[in-house]
Design a protein around this nucleic acid. Sequence first.
DNA 1: ATAGGGTTATCT
DNA 2: AGATAACCCTAT
Length: 258
Amino acid sequence: MGAPKQKWTSEEEEALRRGVLKHGAGKWRTIQKDPEFSPVLSSRSNIDLKDKWRNLSFSASGLGSRDKQRVPRPKAPSSSPSPSPQLLLLSAPNNVAEASPPEDCEKSPQDDKTPSPKFSMILEALGELKEPNGSEVATICNFIEIDKSYKLTDSYAKRALAPMKDPSLKKKDSAKSSKAAKGLGQSSPALDAAEAAAMKVADAEAKSHLANEHMMEVERIGKMAEETESLLELASELYERCSRGEALTILQVAHREF
DNA sequence: ATAGGGTTATCT
DNA sequence: AGATAACCCTAT
């Protein structure tokens, strides 16, 4: 019969991405009803949007064709005495002081080291997060990618993007360093995740290259550096929040201005 | 209305 | 046959 799975087109995908970026992930109904995407997503339901977004997220951080770590779901618990739940419990005190405003999150004033491989640290942190959160980190990865694209677009849309203010970057770095170091030293999965993240960044880089192709080239480099810094900061903050069990406040971070 | 799980169809 | 992508159903 005639139900050959209507595949998503680029227009629809773009609309979805834009919608998520605009309203935020979770407001599928709002996105679908938005007059801007309504004509494009007229044949899609809010559930469809959710599913598509889920697939996108999974593919984003699930690595293209590497690691086929399928979810271990023994539906039939036979007499297999091999649980070996080596689940690494992240240092996330869920029962932290509730009602803690996301603004005054002052950390210890201990900074310092500004290690060279801070980028690697970010990736490591992401890798560690991947274990306990799984799909959520995928969303984060995808979000980061979108954020970059969005910022890039907006950047040359206004041609007047204010420089990033790198306020508490070292602080975050230091804090994260401790946690990351405590969680794991040198693991394979972490490296894998790091590689995936690196690929993501590379992809974003390529995209920005294409996007700015029509613009100046020299300034593009500078912009790229700024983007990288911003990305690092964003990743750090995300990691911090996740560690504190702040669920996903990605939307908040997305809407906030850099 | 949204999130998650499960099923079916398409592609490699 | 495996993996991915769309679709459907259920719980909150």
